[in-house]
């Protein structure tokens, strides 16, 4: 009796099914608990990878809920590459439709934020421009210029207080989150991603810069504090090129 990898894989994710026929213990009897070793290895290792990827989600829902949820996720969404550092990329969509998570509507956006922090951690290194380089430009030249931002830089906007919730669950003395829409900028000046609360006008401006829009054309909102935005980006080593 041959056991192909299709049958082996199907058996791994169906705990109720008997082990595929043709897998044996040393006495020639069917491998029952022995096949369970692989089932357990796969489920535990994928669940552990999700725990490592989403520590804030785990804190918000508790260990027991997280483990149960991970068990559902890993059967629905197996990794599509061996890079486990990026496993869990469908978690925001999954949480949006996962019935037991409906009472915490901000979870999908927190999952997005945790994925973005991981991407920032593993993003390519880049050398930042000298902060004086912008100051040296004449106003017209400055407004006509396009800024290339460092690979870790990302902007996320949410209807929920993603910054407040993230901080409250990752730092000791953070204030209690206030239920309000929030936007964040993610940077990585060294090796550790940083998260910054920004207003909507800054989020719009930085998002436009990331789309290679000339600086002058990103000033669509007169509430924007351009000086503060540029000094935040420069201070976070987030600008790698001015052209």
């Amino acid at each position: 009796m041959k056991v192909n990898q299709e049958a082996f894989q199907a058996g791994l994710f169906d705990p109720a099914a008997p082990a595929p026929t043709g897998l044996q213990n040393p006495d020639g009897a069917p491998a029952t608990k022995r096949f369970d070793v692989y089932r357990n290895n796969v489920a535990v290792s994928l669940s552990d990878a999700l725990e490592a990827a989403f520590p804030v989600i785990r804190k918000l829902v508790g260990d027991q809920f997280f483990r149960a949820m991970a068990g559902v996720y890993l059967r629905k969404h197996q990794p599509t590459s061996p890079l486990m550092m990026f496993y869990g990329e469908k978690m925001p969509q999954f949480l949006r439709r996962f019935p037991p998570a409906q009472s915490l509507p901000y979870l999908p956006d927190i999952a997005k934020l945790e994925l973005a922090m991981r991407r920032a951690y593993h993003a390519a290194d880049a050398t930042a421009v000298d902060p004086q380089a912008l100051a040296a430009l004449a106003p017209d030249a400055l407004l006509a210029s396009r800024l290339r931002l460092a690979p870790p830089v990302q902007v996320l906007t949410s209807d929920y207080p993603i910054h407040g919730i993230y901080r409250a669950n990752t730092t000791n003395d953070a204030p209690k989150p206030v239920m309000q829409p929030e936007a964040v900028l993610i940077t990585r000046p060294g090796f550790d991603p940083q998260i910054h609360l920004i207003d909507r006008s800054t989020a719009t401006c930085v998002t436009a810069l990331m789309d290679n829009t000339p600086l002058g054309e990103t000033l669509t909102d007169d509430r924007l504090d351009l000086g503060a935005t540029l000094s935040l980006l420069l201070g976070q080593s987030a600008i790698t090129e001015i052209h």
Binding site: Q5, E6, V42, S45, A49, P79, S81, P82
Partner: peptide, 17 residues
């Protein structure tokens, strides 16, 4: 060992005959 089947990575070292 094998660990990928049908584009799915199973994150374990699985046996072969």
């Amino acid at each position: 060992a094998w660990s990928t089947h049908d584009s799915h990575f199973l994150n374990d070292l699985l046996p072969l005959p």
